[in-house]
């Protein structure tokens, strides 16, 4: 998906500016990492892109459509192509890991008789095969984060918005998740993620060989392109 923002201004609940008169574009198939000292700003920015947080002024275009002008059914169709990893998008506490992931396949209309097998293969790849039938409460915070990420990626969305998906993830899971994100991006998915600056930058440099990542900084309402690339 191709994302463009024109003259966008966004504030938080207290009226503090998160974004001021910003112009940006995320081309189709791009991989953008949003660095921010203020975690809430990055979250609000991503939620704005996800059609959940209406900008105060300006225009947002996702594939030449403004998600805030869509009807409910149009928005649901639009969401079919969007994967999200937000900390408040918790896993369903009364469903097992497998059921949580199968749910999204049903919701997006990708469920078929082979889905269970495919999900189990994915969980094995992610090192969660033994925990497939556990409830989320039996997982570590990092494992839950990984399951949330798998849930957002399994249906190969055209746009993936992830709010600090590496938070709390152990090193091995970090590598797996980074690899999954890279593979997803290579298959054409536009990725926009937020991350804590220092920790992610160092790890990404080590892992991101052959991957073009666009870095942006969001602080004090200003969005800067850092033009730093890992390749």
């Amino acid at each position: 998906m191709f994302i463009q923002g024109f003259h966008l201004t966004q504030t938080d609940a207290s009226g503090m500016p998160i974004l001021e008169d910003a112009y940006f574009s995320f081309p189709e198939g791009s991989y953008t990492v949003l660095l921010s000292e203020n975690v809430l700003s990055a979250t609000a920015f991503l939620k704005m892109l996800a059609g959940e947080y209406h900008p105060v002024t300006g225009t947002l275009r996702v594939d030449h459509q403004d998600p805030y002008t869509l009807t409910e059914s149009q928005k649901r169709r639009w969401l079919t192509d969007v994967g999200v990893i937000f900390s408040d998008f918790k896993l369903f506490s009364d469903r097992t890991v497998v059921e949580n992931i199968l749910f999204i396949l049903r919701a997006k209309g990708f469920w078929d008789k082979d889905s269970l097998g495919a999900v189990n293969i994915l969980l094995n790849k992610a090192g969660l095969g033994a925990k497939a039938n556990l409830l989320p409460e039996a997982l570590t915070e990092g494992e839950r984060q990984l399951v949330m990420a798998l849930r957002a990626m399994i249906f190969r969305p055209r746009l993936l918005l992830a709010d600090d998906p590496f938070q709390g993830v152990e090193e091995s899971a970090f590598r797996i998740l980074f690899k999954f994100l890279s593979e997803l991006n290579k298959s054409g998915t536009t990725i926009v993620i937020s991350a804590r600056q220092a920790a992610f930058l160092e790890e990404a440099k080590k892992l991101g060989e052959g991957q073009t990542i666009r870095w942006m900084q969001l602080d004090g309402g200003k969005l800067h392109s850092l033009e730093e690339k890992v390749s």
């Binding site: 959940e52 079919t80 969007v82 999200v84 998008f89 009364d94 919701a107």
Partner: peptide, 16 residues
Amino acid sequence: REDMLSMVRLGAPVWM
């Protein structure tokens, strides 16, 4: 209610 909200935000259709 949290699960319900998640369903909506995950794009679950009305029948689900």
